[in-house]
Design a protein around this nucleic acid. Sequence first.
DNA 1: ACGTGATCCTGGAAGC
DNA 2: TGCTTCCAGGATCACG
Length: 269
Amino acid sequence: MPELPEVEVTRLGIAPHIEGQTINKVIVRDKRLRWPVPDEVQLLEGQVVEAVTRRAKYLLLQCPVGTAILHLGMSGKLRVIDSSVERIKHDHVDIEFANGKILRFNDPRRFGAFLWQASNAQLSQLATLGPEPLTDEFNVDYLVAKAKGRQIAIKTFIMDNHVVVGVGNIYANESLFFAGIHPKTAAGKVSKARLTRLVEEIKTVLAKAIEQGGTTLKDFMKADGNPGYFAQELMVYGRGGEHCQVCAAELKEMKIGQRATVYCPECQR
DNA sequence: ACGTGATCCTGGAAGC
DNA sequence: TGCTTCCAGGATCACG
């Protein structure tokens, strides 16, 4: 279940192996992802990967004629492997490099995406995204202005890509716990002081997860190529019915916007 | 403009 | 044991 930290860890894992490398071949075995893989990805052949960057949960392979834009969805994985590695189920796309390495995209549930953006174009998926959570652009003044008058639950609000990118269900639950805000509170009713706290907690929890993911980087190429999930101690996510680690109250579970939500009724009001 | 809920897909878990 | 049902997740879209 890749959230922003997992995507960033993936980026850090693959970038050193493919930046500066020339692409020989692009093999699309199954184009049925979230959107059909466009034929234009063949334009990657012969191109040099100038940089591997990230925008929200999208990974961008930047080449002179355009950019391949990848999304891992919820079950997508990217591995850099030798050409001798046998394919497994759901290996949908291979990018073969001149040095013999392959960037292989595997995605059982096909919620992921493999898109193409010509260098002079703007992909609609990227056009309307909110700020990156770990930049100064995401600050309390911005969030106050954005939340003004909104009736939507604060949890749904911070998971909205147009508000801030990269905050998925896990980290939305966690950051609201740390900020002491009830997830169902109307976004426009949360005080500036508490939004200040929320901004801080979102940044902290994401940065921490990236840091912990980083510790597995050395093993990135090993075994199944899975960068691993974070050994992070989750305070509320997946712990409905358990006792709050701060006040011992029973953690409550509810659905907000179809998503599992766990919170402490004492700590979060 | 805003808010809600359905939808895509598959594998694993839970229920019968 | 084997079948069915439910659930997870991000992002988009159709609706009121």
